[in-house]
Computed example of a mutant assay.
Amino acid sequence: MDELTIGCYRYDTTQALFDGTVGIDATMRTAATLPEIFERLIRGAEFDVAELGLTFHLRLLEAGAPFVALPVFPNRVFRHSCVFVNTRSGITGPGDLAGKTIGEFGTYGQDSGVWAKGVLMDEHGFDPARSRWVIGGLEHPAPPFDFIPHPHPADVEVTTAPAGRTLNAMLDAGEIDALFSANVPQCVLDGSPNVTRLFPDYEPVERDYHRRTGIFPIMHTVVVRRDVLEARPGLARRVHDAFTAAKDVAADRYRTHRRLYQVQSMVPWTNALVERDREQFPEDWWPYGISANRAALDTCLRYHFEQGLTARRWQVEDVFAPDLLDT
């Protein structure tokens, strides 16, 4: 039987698969950007197993795409910090987003946007239909992704960015009032006085959200082609266990290197951050499997439906491999 091909990003959670610390009978591949991995999976069927944005998977699942998700989550991020606003827009809090023009990268409802909108809807009464949405490239002009469906409710105004324009430049110039972005726009990295975050001091806001809800938002999952699973009994669990072992290698490195003040990192006070996190999170602060993530998964599936990105309200049992529902 041919060797598996796995496509995913090189995170600390997956590095042990790439360097062979965790053995898996597969060829590991990556790409310069995450959308490139997604496109190579969806358009080119280049991988047997691959990382995929959870919202991408849900859209494809409804369209009948031949992938099965595993409860493996290599990318998860708190998203209060991902909403950026132009300082001349009049936006000083979530309630000011109504009536404004907001940019979003690649598609209406990418993973970071689904979470940010959902949290604002739950906690601040945000209504996406009361804003106008512009889809485009963040740092390079680009049309919406052409390898996934683009559903959105009929009452939500969604347009594409003008030709040759980037969301970063439009935000800096005030051509859009706000931006929901998985990446920090270059104008912010450059210290532009024209742009700030909706929640400038976002860490305590995100920590409070986690304390109250127990949710560490999930962006991406890992999927396997259905025909590959059918041809290889037990593969889902083997892949799950390998990704889990790789993640545990990374976690153990952080734990072990506390004694050495995290000298493997050039970021000062990393130890202090790790120690603060240990006070807030359980010992396994980045869990895989269903049981430890059910609240986050149920919330994401609810958000996806409430935001009109799927016609049905998916349940966890509908989305993930049946033989891993006990994890």
Rank of each mutant, 00 (worst) to 15 (best):
K100N: 08
Q15E: 09
F67A: 03
R88Q: 13
F84S: 04
G64P: 09
G103Y: 01
E39R: 15
A50R: 01
R29L: 15
E36W: 04
G99P: 06
A69N: 00
R59Y: 12
V49A: 07
K100R: 08
G106P: 00
S89P: 12
F38M: 08
L61W: 04
G90R: 07
G95R: 13
A50F: 00
A63L: 09
P66I: 14
P74K: 05
F18D: 05
L97I: 05
C82Y: 07
T107G: 08
A26G: 03
C82F: 00
F73V: 13
I24Q: 03
T27C: 10
G99M: 04
G44H: 15
A65W: 15
D25N: 14
F56H: 12
F84P: 07
T92W: 12
R79N: 08
N86A: 11
E104R: 07
D19I: 11
G103A: 10
R29E: 14
V22A: 02
G90Y: 13
A69W: 13
A98R: 01
R29H: 13
L41E: 02
R29K: 15
L17A: 04
E39Q: 14
Q15M: 09
T21S: 15
T27A: 14
T92Q: 09
V68P: 03
A69P: 08
F73H: 04
D96N: 09
E62D: 05
G93K: 09
A26S: 03
R43I: 02
V77T: 05
E104I: 12
T33G: 02
G20E: 06
V49W: 09
C82S: 15
Q15T: 15
G103N: 08
V72Y: 06
T55Q: 11
D19N: 15
E51S: 08
T30W: 00
S89W: 10
R43K: 13
G106H: 01
G90P: 00
I37M: 09
L70I: 06
F78C: 06
V72W: 05
T30I: 03
T87N: 14
A63V: 14
N86E: 06
T27N: 13
